[in-house]
Amino acid sequence: MAHTPLNKNSRVGIVGIPPLDIIRHLNAVGAAIFDLDEPIVKVDIETAAPHLPRVYCAILRTAVINALHLDLDAIYIDVGPGKCDCALHVSTIFKDIVSIPVYPCRNTDTSAYGYPLSRTRMSLMEKFQKITRGVQSAKPYDLQKNAPCKPVAGFWGVPPRDFSLFELFPDRTHVYGWTRCMENKTPADTALESYFNPEVPTVFFSQSFCAKTALAKFLAAKHPKGLYLDIDVGCSSSAKAKIQAFLELSGVPYDLG
């Protein structure tokens, strides 16, 4: 499955969720994995401008910056139905701007790992940190840990570029959408991605300029208490105020955690 000899000293970047076979291989050789979708390198996002339009998904602009600055040996990028066409085009750009092997792949894995973190009681920030870190491992979950809780709020969508908005949510917020698919290791499962719980007030989030804005807006309109929200690079104070007011006015009990 792997195309280039990798070993425990190798540094491998991933964009999206490469298929489990690739992750297993990277884990087996002991390669260090860098999730390029996350802001790892602290430089101004505008430095991606020579390679990508400014009006482009901030996750992929971040991936470009990471790829340029991290000293990597290879990049695996999911360009299939588990990610998006934006990533497909970025894979073409990667091949031009970095001098390491870039391997486009298509994750169509269907073996469901479960999504205990998405449904447990834990700060939303920590939940997302754990779910996104989980991408780097192919180990099955200990399903005894992280028991499900009764939700009081919901967050639907991809992991945002700016996690600071999670501070506003109570601990009993369930995670839906692509992040739940991510935890389940089935990123192309559109039925799971489209699922929401109509009983709990839910924020339907999408990165600005992502095709998922359409699904987020559509589902928010279907949900009896849904708020559609798209955010670009960082969460502005008005976006935070909107979330705060939505949760408050929807009667989400903060004090219960």
Partner: peptide
């Protein structure tokens, strides 16, 4: 009698 939709347009 309950909040059904909201919006805030600063930009």
């Amino acid at each position: 009698g309950e909040l059904a939709d909201m919006g805030w347009n600063v930009e």
